[in-house]
Design a protein around this nucleic acid. Structure first.
Length: 897
DNA sequence: CTGCTAGCATA
DNA sequence: GTATGCTAGCAGA
């Protein structure tokens, strides 16, 4: 079936003129309406491959309606000169694009369209009319449909009936009753859409209604009777003519070739730079990249002119949701500077706004500061909804330029994490997994390794393709992922009430940073260095030759080759292990392993902490800013990198001294609060074990309580050794331990370990049931859940070989506990942050270490924080066990414990 | 310069 | 036995 596409260009011209900002070229000629109409035609051309088409305008001069009714359109002001001035260049551009253009003197565009539509429909064609005008709905039938290209609303017969309440053939009656104020054609006084639909539903047609006019009661009935004489004329005026003589045949309405040279000249003058570049580039297109499905046609625009910027800003302000992405000079969120911003509002269409590209021959870009200032209100508006891929990063970038991003309602990184925490969440993987799209890899844009260039050096064409795609893909991912979250109340809760709020808080925590006493660490480094030298020469002496104490391979050769010590265990690579466990055992009989242990411990402290941390101090803020990754740990925990502040030593005496270097500025103190036995409490809650619940409710020392059960004695009779055993067992339970693991941990026989476990499960039968139930559940559905509905996937639990499946079973036991603990502390962060904000406090949240929050508290807020913090943390959820948080205070992190 | 292993810091 | 991230050494570019 052939298609006829008719464009009611006049209806768009007025709308574009009024809707778009007053865009002008450098000669101060208005261009906004031209831009709007051309943009619409480009979209239309993309969506419809029509066999015949026409772009129809009103022509100058009187029409039959003016003869029929002298007041027709009499209330219209004359066309604004700024609009009149745009008509000729618009017509020229449309013709140059190859569109057949019609403006028939003495005939309105509507009547031209009506006549052509009828001809097309009679010839058996599919007719599509693109219009912004509701009057044309009267033309719709089984062959003819409407599309509003501005709102993307399509109307067929059913659509018209749904939208107006009457079918297309009654639209004229409907319009006659309500009148058309734009054309100065009155209807029946006080009759609007509601009454018109009511009457037409009751009496079917206007003619029938007129016949029964005497039956209509009330004021509107009276008004109807008063209008009876006028209505036929109104009806004639509002009826689109489908039989006007036209000076052409339908067959002539075929698109001609594009006159590229002429079009380029027009775009040049109008300063439509992206379209101009597009014209210049067409013909030298490279082959599209391979992809698993035919790539959708995309429209990526590079914003280089004020006019384009204003046009996009206008769209951004009106959009329900905008996908947003930044391009920067660096991956370090605190140091990176903005290079460009990309936006997407509808799939396959996006814009890149370059602001700081500099390379030889780089085009002039919009002024950096001025443009950011122009965008700032939109970026900072909480009412303009945004989606992005890891917007915490973009928030930092904007913050580096004094802009505070608000209106973050969605984040595809977090969506992916919520839907399938165990899969990769980078955009390239997600685009291929969910959308079947092969994205442009960053390495192809900027190179890789030593040859990698900064994004600011990437040429604008490539940068636009890359950056606009990021925004486009993010939007498409959102449309794909969010529907998988929204219907599930558990996932929706975790996403909306935990992850999204936490990402905003993490932004603040990262920006706050933490103060480090670099000179203290330097002093410790020096001391450690000296000690290491002594240990090293001692080790060389014992070995009888020099070797690198940092090299496990060389240690191996010395210990098991040169000195012939017994091999205790092998590494996965099959070589003799020299790890802590092994050295510990060997140290009982030989001097060198003990020395190596001491060396290893100190070397780790020096290289990872005392040497490294001072180098991580941000010169601008004088503090250390870690990055919290919210989407790596499959259990829902956070992780911390660059530097990792979640593995600062605490167990050894020397290690703890490093925590003395985490300080507060003068006038402030460090407060630390950590949940006590959070995972065991969650185990009690999840299992509902009476005995365990009772012990927590009574506030007993839980390891002591466990010991008294296992060793069948009273709490007071438990020895320190028994309590230590019980503690190992309790931890083992959380980790889904086996008798084998427990045995090696306690250094006892497997049988003895099994006996302890049996005793435990006899005394806590609820725990045994819970563990078995969790394993079964995991096997059945492939995932387990936290108390709040977070899903923890275990891909290996069904398939997988023996060891892998066993590991998955242990993870299944551990995940609900670790994951619920993660949910709880995230809720605590939200509660604490909100409390601080509501009370306008200066206290800063500076670190999160899985079950601990660290705050920097000004002297004057100390009392309030100490008083409120534990309650804020413990009241985030009502579990079957009480939650307990212990709070400490000090000049540094070590003292606060 | 990149990617891997061994080892080890935390909860 | 669970979950992470970082360093040094080392092999193969």
């Amino acid at each position: 079936m052939k298609t006829l596409l008719l464009v009611d260009a006049s209806s768009y011209l007025y709308r574009a003129f009024h809707a778009l900002p007053d865009l002008r070229n450098r000669h101060n000629e208005p261009t906004g309406a031209i831009y709007g109409v051309l943009n619409m035609l480009r979209r239309l051309h993309q969506d419809y491959q029509a066999d015949y088409s026409a772009c129809v305008f009103d022509a100058k001069g009187k029409t039959f309606r003016d003869d029929l009714y002298p007041d027709y359109k009499a209330n219209r002001p004359p066309m604004p000169s700024d609009l009149a001035a745009q008509i000729e260049p618009l017509h020229d551009s449309i013709r140059a694009m190859g569109w057949p253009l019609l403006a028939v003197e003495g005939v309105e565009a509507d009547d031209v369209i009506g006549t052509l539509a009828q001809i097309g429909a009679r010839a058996g064609m599919r007719v599509v009319i693109s219009t912004g005008d509701k009057d044309i709905a009267q033309l719709v039938n089984s062959h003819i449909s409407l599309i509003n290209t501005m709102s993307n609303e399509a109307l067929d017969e059913a659509g018209v009936t749904t939208k107006f309440g009457v079918p297309p053939e009654r639209i004229v009656d409907y319009l006659t009753l309500i009148g058309d104020s734009a054309d100065n054609v009155p209807g029946v006084d006080k009759v609007g859409p509601k009454t018109a639909v009511k009457w037409l539903t009751q009496y079917q047609t206007l003619d029938n209604l007129v016949k029964h006019a005497s039956q209509i009661s009330g004021v509107v009935g009276e008004n109807l009777r008063n209008a009876l004489e006028w209505l036929p004329k109104a009806r004639e005026l509002l009826t689109i003519r489908c039989d006007v003589p036209l000076p052409l045949k339908l067959e002539e309405l075929t698109a001609g070739p594009q006159d590229t040279a002429r079009l380029a000249g027009l775009y040049e003058r109008l300063e439509f730079k992206t379209w101009l570049r597009e014209l210049q580039n067409s013909g030298s297109n490279e082959a599209p990249p391979a992809s698993s499905k035919p790539p959708a046609e995309v429209q990526y625009e590079c914003i280089l002119s004020e006019a384009q910027l204003e046009q996009w800003l206008c769209r951004l302000e009106q959009a329900d949701l905008v996908s947003l992405d930044t391009e920067t000079t660096s991956l370090d969120p605190m140091q990176a500077r903005l290079v460009g911003i990309s936006f997407a509002i509808t799939p396959h269409e996006a814009a890149y706004l370059p602001l700081a590209h500099h390379y030889a021959g780089a085009p002039q870009q919009l002024d950096f500061e001025k443009t950011l200032l122009r965008l700032k209100p939109w970026l900072e508006s909480p009412d303009n909804a945004k989606v992005g891929q890891n917007l915490k990063y973009d928030s930092h970038i904007f913050a580096n330029h004094g802009i505070f991003l608000r209106g973050i309602v969605h984040d595809t990184l977090l969506q992916s994490y919520i839907v399938e925490s165990h899969k990769p969440h980078d955009m390239d993987s997600m685009a291929s997994r969910h959308l079947g799209i092969k994205t442009l890899p960053y390495a192809e844009v900027a190179g890789k390794g030593a040859k990698q260039i900064g994004f600011e050096e990437v040429d604008l064409d490539t940068a636009t393709r890359y950056a606009a795609e990021d925004a486009d893909i993010t939007l498409q991912l959102h449309q794909h992922l969010y529907p998988q979250i929204q219907p599930d109340s558990g996932l929706e809760y975790v996403y909306r009430n935990i992850e999204i709020p936490v990402s905003k808080i993490l932004f603040h925590v990262e920006r706050n940073g933490v103060l480090i006493d670099s000179s203290l660490l330097a002093k410790q480094s020096r001391a450690l260095g000296e000690k290491l030298l002594t240990l090293e020469s001692g080790a060389h002496a014992l070995a009888g030759q020099p070797f690198n104490l940092n090299s496990p391979k060389q240690i191996q050769e010395i210990l098991f080759g040169l000195l012939g010590l017994p091999v205790k265990k092998k590494t996965p690579g099959g070589t003799p292990s020299t790890d802590e466990d092994v050295l510990q055992q060997l140290a009982e009989d030989y001097p060198l392993p003990k020395l190596l242990l001491e060396y290893r411990g100190l070397a780790k402290l020096k290289s990872t902490y005392t040497d490294k941390l001072p180098r991580m101090v941000n010169p601008a803020t004088g503090r250390v800013h870690t990055s919290y990754n919210q989407a790596v740990a499959v259990t829902g925990r956070l992780s911390s990198t660059e530097p990792n502040l979640q593995n600062i030593p605490v167990r050894s005496e020397e290690g703890r001294r490093i925590r003395e270097a985490f300080i507060a500025p003068p006038g402030s103190r460090i407060i630390s609060a950590d949940y006590s036995q959070i995972e065991l409490r969650i185990m009690a809650h999840l299992s509902g074990d009476k005995n365990l619940l009772r012990a927590f409710a009574a506030g007993e020392d839980i390891h002591r309580a466990t010991a008294s059960e296992i060793f069948a004695c009273t709490l007071l009779e438990v020895t320190p050794e028994q309590r230590r055993y019980a503690k190992v067992i309790n931890f083992g339970l959380i980790y889904g331990m086996s008798a084998f693991g427990l045995a090696s941990q306690l250094g006892i026989e497997r049988g003895a370990a099994q006996a302890y476990m049996d005793r435990y499960f006899t005394r806590y039968p609820g725990v045994a049931d819970y563990m078995a139930g969790t394993r079964d559940m995991a096997k059945q559905q492939g995932y387990v859940e936290t108390v709040f509905g977070r899903r923890l996937w275990l891909p290996d639990i069904k398939g997988g070989n023996g060891p892998r499946r066993q590991a998955a079973e242990r993870a299944a036991i551990n995940a609900p506990m670790q994951g619920t603990a993660a949910d709880l502390i995230k809720l605590a962060m939200i509660a604490v942050h909100q409390w601080l904000q509501e009370n306008r406090m200066k206290t800063l949240l500076v670190m999160q270490v899985h079950d601990e929050l660290v705050l920097e508290v000004p002297q004057e807020e100390l009392a309030a924080v100490r008083r409120e913090l534990p309650g804020l943390m413990c009241n985030v959820a009502a579990l079957a066990v009480p939650l307990v948080a212990e709070v400490g205070e000090g000049a540094n992190w070590e003292q606060a414990h």
